[in-house]
Structure formats: structure tokens, C-alpha cells
Write a protein that binds this DNA or RNA. Structure first.
Lengths: 112, 112
DNA sequence: TTGTTGGTTTGCCATATGGTAAAGTATAGC
DNA sequence: GCTATACTTTACCATATGGCAAACCAACAA
């Protein structure tokens, strides 16, 4: 699935920025409107909104507008998607490392 | 630690590209020289070397040059560093989700 | 020593990213 | 209705990214 790749692209790209990671950290603690989310950061709203948009298209957050305030929520399963990919890679690595250890074990006397 | 943030930046950024993720996948299977790594991709060596450089400065791979061939190795613990950050975030989320469930449980009759 | 191979460097280009300022829109409160 | 609030849009800018072509260098191989 080529689409999976694009999803991982945008997902990891969204995570590759301290502002965006901070927003995620903040939202883990509960939903919040744009203005409150933006407060801690030394940048204008337009710049901040771009970050939110990156986060939203990556699926890491979603948002709803009620009246004039837009509230943002986290989408925790996207986090686990990224975690999943990493875990898979590590599994491959560990599989190989284990086989390698077994090979060494089988062909060398134990060093103890 | 502000440096941790920069490390995560480069780490996630390195992962946010299908070529680079493919290289990682390939290297999990064992070390390989630059040329062999580059073969599957439809781009010139200079472009590919940039990807390798991104991977190397992120710490995800390392490389050694012997004679005229540079061999690349994976650095699996960097993968777990990224995994770690994600796991931490998920833990916060789950903690909150659990508390929320407990709250709902305590204030509402079970729906069964 | 003369190629050829494997990698590197240099210069260039198009596009994407991350930020600004300033003007615009729509709702909430008085 | 008037005004402040909470975004939103537009236009613009500097830098980073991802790619190319072409020249270059070092080390095997013949």
C-alpha cells in the first residue's frame, strides 16, 4: 500500500517539530481551544495555525468549531500507528540479532 | 534538556521520508555498501548521499569507509529512542483515559 | 599506466517550510 | 448597534529540502 507510506511521511513529519510535539503533549491532558494552545509559544497565530494544520492533516489531532472558538482534540491512535512502525522495525532487528547470537553461540565456545 | 528536543527533531525528520525508511528497512537485514543501498532507488548518487547523511546525523545509521567503499550499519537504539517518546505520550494519554473511565464509572450506573 | 569503479564535491534549481505583517470575518458581550 | 475576541485569509519573505548534472578524487584491476 503506497498510501501507508504517505501517511507515515506526514505522521513523522508532524512529529519532527518541538512546537507540534508540545501541542500534542498539551492535548494529551485534555482538549483545548486554539488560543489557549497558542499562548505558550512566541509566534503569531498564522504561524501557529500552520502547525495545527500540519497536525490535523497528519491525523494526530482533530478539531471542531463552535461559535467562534475552535477546540482541538488529540487522536491517540495515530500515535500508536507511528509506534507500530517502529516496533515492527525493531522486531526485524531483534530477530536478526537473535539469529546472529544463536549462530555465534553454535560456532564458538561460550566465553564464560 | 533542550538538546533532547533537537535530537527528536532530527530523528523524526529522518524517519519522515520513504527513501530513508526503506534504507533503514534494508539495513535491518545487515550492513551494506552505499552503492548497493542506492540501487533500488531512481535517483542519482548525490541525492541519495544526502539521505544517508540525514540518517547518519540523526544517529539512525553509522558508516565506515574501507578502501574506496563505505559500508553502512544500522544503529537500532535510535529507533527505540523514537519509540520511547511515543510510548511515553501514550502512557500519559492512557493514564488520562483510565482516570476518565473511572470518573464516568463512579458517576454513572454501568450501562450493562 | 590506464581504465573503471565507488564515492565525493560543487553548483544549480524548484519547491516546501516556518515565519512575518496586515487586513478580513464572524460571533459574543455590552 | 458597537466593540472586542477568536480566528482566518492573503501576501510576502528567508531558509531548508530534495533533486539534478558535471566535474573530481582515490583505489583497485588489467
Amino acid at each position: 500500500m503506497a498510501n501507508q507510506q504517505a501517511a507515515l511521511d506526514t505522521l513523522f513529519h508532524a512529529l519532527a517539530d518541538p512546537t507540534r510535539r508540545a501541542v500534542i503533549g498539551r492535548l494529551l491532558d485534555g482538549a483545548a481551544p486554539v488560543k489557549r494552545l497558542a499562548e505558550p509559544f512566541a509566534m503569531g497565530l498564522p504561524a501557529f495555525l500552520k502547525h495545527l494544520s500540519v497536525l490535523e492533516t497528519s491525523g494526530l489531532i482533530r478539531s471542531e468549531k463552535a461559535g467562534r472558538v475552535r477546540t482541538c482534540y488529540i487522536n491517540a491512535d495515530r500515535l500508536t500507528a507511528a509506534e507500530h512502525w517502529l516496533a515492527e522495525q525493531r522486531a526485524v532487528w531483534q530477530g536478526r540479532a537473535d539469529r546472529l547470537a544463536a549462530f555465534v553461540e553454535a560456532h564458538n565456545p561460550p566465553t564464560t
